[in-house]
Design a binder for these strands. Structure first.
Lengths: 184, 184
DNA sequence: GTCTATACAGTGATAGAC
DNA sequence: GTCTATCACTGTATAGAC
């Protein structure tokens, strides 16, 4: 077994995927060890706080990704272009519904209480950024917020349903319907 | 400590709530013991198959509840009345978004693979029953199925978002928007 | 930085007294 | 039917050699 020296930043995406697939409780240290290829020693070296610190790091990275690729463009790009880009980014990121939203999954069980601030903030910023783009597109603030809320709800629900029925087409159809509604 | 004799049927709702709050992995035997007030001996007496049998029993009960209170009415009652009744039942059952959908939560992690058939069947029957009512209401089959799919997605997403932001109003608003869309 | 060894609390599960 | 005692195993976490 070769000793491959890793960096903390390289390990986080692997841990993130473990949490997405298995949930917070389901992702045990041994499962994370399997997926990262790192022993417990290395893992605790990078994350002295253990599992909770791993989840925090993962959430921070997810947050940062959405900020850069979705929230900031929604605020700064021309609204039509930004919203089109959001649908593409969402479809790519969630692998057509096969990949779960980590924050949404955490929201469903007691894990939410551990990371309540980050969880709420993530969704709040998403809705606000999308509503901002919709306002600049011509909607009044109330209508923009309603549409933004509905879109974020639709994405989360589409992930649940497409996974439940194991059918990517559900995710694709949901995204198309929502894109049409926001465009119209 | 008084020995209160229980029946299997009385225990299932308590176990269901444990799974909803904690997830499949998070609901350990000791946590289930706490919530049911039953020792492991009694629990394994009722469910010799352990946790997996408990989850199966819980899923079967959920299935049966939705069949009786939502799916059958959608097929047999006048469509307008049935759909109105569905929104009320959904709002009551999910406690305005505070209570998680057990099947939806299971769908998000590896628990889905354990109960893939039941999970898929639950959502499939919901969509089909709602589409049936919408057809009888005048929509063509394709449009009815799209609306039904969108409604089920919206309910699941609304649960995620209202829990994430800890805000029941989100669930209420989502239900109102969807009810209006199906009525219009 | 990575590993192995280890501690010990908690896990699902079983057996048997009452 | 309910409990307690106990099982083997896995959980998170730590210490120390390399």
């Amino acid at each position: 077994m070769a000793r491959t020296v890793s960096e903390r930043a390289d390990v986080i995406p692997l841990i993130a995927e473990a949490f997405r697939d298995l949930g917070y409780d389901g992702a045990s240290m041994s499962r994370i060890t399997e997926r990262t290829g790192l022993g417990k020693g290395s893992l605790y070296h990078f994350f002295p706080g253990g599992k909770e610190e791993m989840a925090s790091a993962v959430l921070a990275e997810v947050d940062e990704w959405f900020d850069r690729h979705i929230f900031v463009p929604l605020r700064e790009l021309p609204p039509r272009e930004a919203i089109d880009g959001m649908w593409i980014a969402v479809n790519t990121y969630f692998l057509s519904g096969r990949r779960v939203c980590l924050v949404g999954a955490f929201a469903l069980d007691e894990t939410r209480d551990r990371f309540a601030g980050v969880v709420a903030d993530y969704f709040w910023r998403w809705i606000e950024a999308l509503a901002d783009a919709l306002c600049r597109k011509g909607y009044d603030s109330e209508r923009a917020h309603a549409l933004a809320e509905e879109a974020v709800i639709g994405i989360q629900g589409a992930i649940v349903l497409s996974r439940a029925l194991d059918d990517e087409a559900i995710f694709a159809r949901a995204l198309q319907r929502m894109a049409a509604r926001l465009a119209g």
